[in-house]
Design a protein around this nucleic acid. Structure first.
Length: 576
DNA sequence: GCCGTTTTCGGCCCGACTGTTTTCAGTCG
């Protein structure tokens, strides 16, 4: 929790310095520090106490002092001083698309605008358009920016971004003159939320492609349309989505894919290597003087720079560049490695399909097993099973397994961790199950110690094999619990308990950096879709990508094991 | 503010699009 606040403070300092017109490289440093802190898997106090923070590249003396001050006092003097130099509400203007630090400074100094409400008034009476460097069109763009901000929920979920990308790619497939299409940007990296969807296209006649794209049926508003780039808002089933299409010649396709996939920080690192070799890297290729030495194929950009190819899922500047240099990149888990699903609901609780239907669907996905994990009785809202119903269910599963061919159903449960840290079923019943996942569904807003203790005690139970959605966040809807994830991971390792990577795009919990922490501590991961229907089983890819973003390999994941090994793994924790 | 196979000072990634401009600044990614 503290990391997020601290990260925000550094970012705010950068914003303010930008408004004040200070040195851009210094500003960039503050942003970078903010990002490093935001990405840090462990709490900043821990990182500081263990000395790891001081060793982190990008964090120097000055930033370290500010962080120490924050940990001790909860504030940063430099931040307060900066904040005193501008009206604090001015920062909200920066969230408007089309308004940057220079624009915010101008409307403040010349029109005394300090809030979005002020700005709306100034737009209405025409005074913004009168400002030097502004004009009617710019004022209209800001107006649209405010409207967009007011109706949009900000970033969208991965599944929503995928839907938009599929819609646009299908359209481009049928557009004449296109050689190749590739979704790039944060979607290709499978970041948990997406700002806008970027699609890269190889074609000779860019202007025609952009024209076709920006006049497609699904386009709601055209934001920009040039010879190589079209930028629009499209309508999807659930939400408006900002989509950019970039067109490059085929000979530049690899370089452009690398460039537009990002992340920005990863690209900065890659380009630094190019600059050191006295080369130039941009979206058109890698150049030695005027001579292109790589461009058509993305892999070659990395190879020429002396790096192993870096999977897009790792391109976050979290050590992947160093690992690529020293040939020590991990062999990431892939969807094809998955032999089953650990978190599946059926119509016995709040799912829609029967056990048999779910098993058949899983078999079609090529799985060897599913673990049926219906809710326990305390989750009344989810129609949780009573002890008696679960006992009956286990018998049904055994009978069904006798009939089924090619797939096995593991008898499981998603048992509630109650407020007093006890479990919703007694050990005798749990002992009859093959695999037990436990999770918190109530009191998620409780204090850190409370939710952490509940989770640790649940892991102490010899029949609990996995903690499901350990932070209980719902992306865009509910903050994660204030849980001590470092303690949870440590105890998972101590108690031979797996942690779930919940694959549902609403959850992605554990998230990527937590996955990395977990495997570094030797904890096994179990990926589960939390499917409540046959279609829900198809969400596995989101979980696999999230794990891979956390540097997870096949060996770290229980889903890749044979049924016999999974059963043995679960049994190992039980009383002999 | 950070950093070092051009090291302790002097650099710090690169380009597209738009709008307001007579050659470029601001914003965005």
């Amino acid at each position: 929790m503290k990391n997020a606040v601290l990260s925000e403070l550094f970012d705010q300092m950068a914003d303010i310095m930008e408004i004040l017109g200070e040195d851009k490289f210094r500003i960039n440093t503050y942003r970078k520090v903010g990002r490093i802190i935001g990405d840090m898997p462990a709490e900043v106090e821990t990182m500081l106490a263990t000395g790891k923070l001081a060793e982190t590249p990008g964090i120097g003396k000055s930033s370290l002092a500010k962080i120490e001050e924050f940990v001790k006092t909860g504030t940063i003097t430099a931040h307060k001083q900066l904040l005193s130099k501008i009206p604090p509400t001015l920062l909200e203007l920066l969230t408007i698309p089309g308004v940057g630090p220079k624009g915010a400074k101008a409307v403040y100094e010349r029109l005394n605008v300090t809030t979005i409400a002020d700005l709306k008034k100034a737009l209405a009476d025409g005074s913004v358009a009168q400002l030097p460097g502004f004009g009617e069109k710019k004022a209209a763009a800001i107006q649209r920016g405010i409207e967009f901000l007011e109706k949009s929920t900000g970033r969208i979920r991965l599944d929503q971004a995928m839907e938009a990308a599929e819609l646009v790619c299908a359209f481009l497939q049928n557009t004449a003159g296109i050689e190749k299409i590739q979704p790039v940007g944060s979607l290709r990296r499978r970041v948990e939320t997406i700002g806008d969807v970027d699609i890269l296209v190889a074609a000779e006649k860019g202007e025609q492609i952009v024209k076709a794209f920006t006049s497609a049926d699904f386009v709601q508003e055209v934001l920009a349309a040039g010879p190589t780039k079209g930028s629009v808002i499209i309508r999807t089933q659930t939400t408006p989505v900002h989509v950019d299409v970039r067109v490059v010649p085929g000979e530049s396709f690899g370089a452009a894919a690398q460039y537009f996939t990002g992340s920005k920080q990863h690209n900065v690192r890659i380009r630094e290597i190019a600059v050191k070799a006295k080369w130039k890297l941009n979206e058109y290729g890698l150049f030695q003087g005027d001579k292109m030495i790589a461009g058509p194929v993305e892999e070659e950009i990395y190879t020429k720079l002396g790096l192993d190819y870096i999977n897009p899922l790792l391109r976050e500047d979290r050590g992947e560049v160093e690992a690529a240099k020293s040939h020590s990149l991990p062999e990431l888990i892939e969807l094809g490695d998955i032999k089953g699903d650990f978190h599946v609901h059926t119509d016995a609780s709040d799912g829609r399909a029967s056990i048999a239907e779910m098993a058949e669907a899983a078999k079609k996905l090529g799985y060897k097993f599913i673990c049926v994990t219906d809710h326990s009785k305390s989750s009344a809202i989810a129609n949780g099973l009573s002890a008696k119903e679960l006992a009956e269910r286990i018998k049904q599963i055994h009978k069904l397994n006798d009939k089924l061919r090619g797939i096995t159903i593991l008898a499981g449960a998603e048992v509630d961790i109650l407020a007093d840290s006890s479990l919703d079923f007694d050990d005798k019943l749990l002992a009859d199950l093959d695999f037990v996942i436990a999770s918190i569904h109530s009191g998620m807003g409780s204090a850190r110690e409370k939710v952490t203790t509940r989770t640790l005690r649940a892991m102490d139970n010899p029949y609990v094999n996995c903690i499901a959605h350990p932070t209980a966040r719902l992306i865009g809807q509910r903050e994660p619990m204030d849980i001590d994830i470092t303690a949870v991971i440590k105890h998972a390792a101590e108690t031979h308990t797996a942690l779930e990577v919940n694959a549902h795009p609403y959850r992605l919990d554990l998230k990527d950096v937590h996955c990395k922490m977990a495997i570094e501590a030797g904890v096994k991961l179990a990926i589960g879709t939390d499917a409540h229907s046959v279609e829900g089983l198809g969400l596995m890819g989101f979980g696999v990508a999230t794990a891979a973003r956390g540097w997870v390999t096949k060996a770290d994941v229980l889903n890749t094991l044979s049924l016999a090994k999974i059963k043995a793994w679960a049994k190992a924790k039980r009383p002999k």
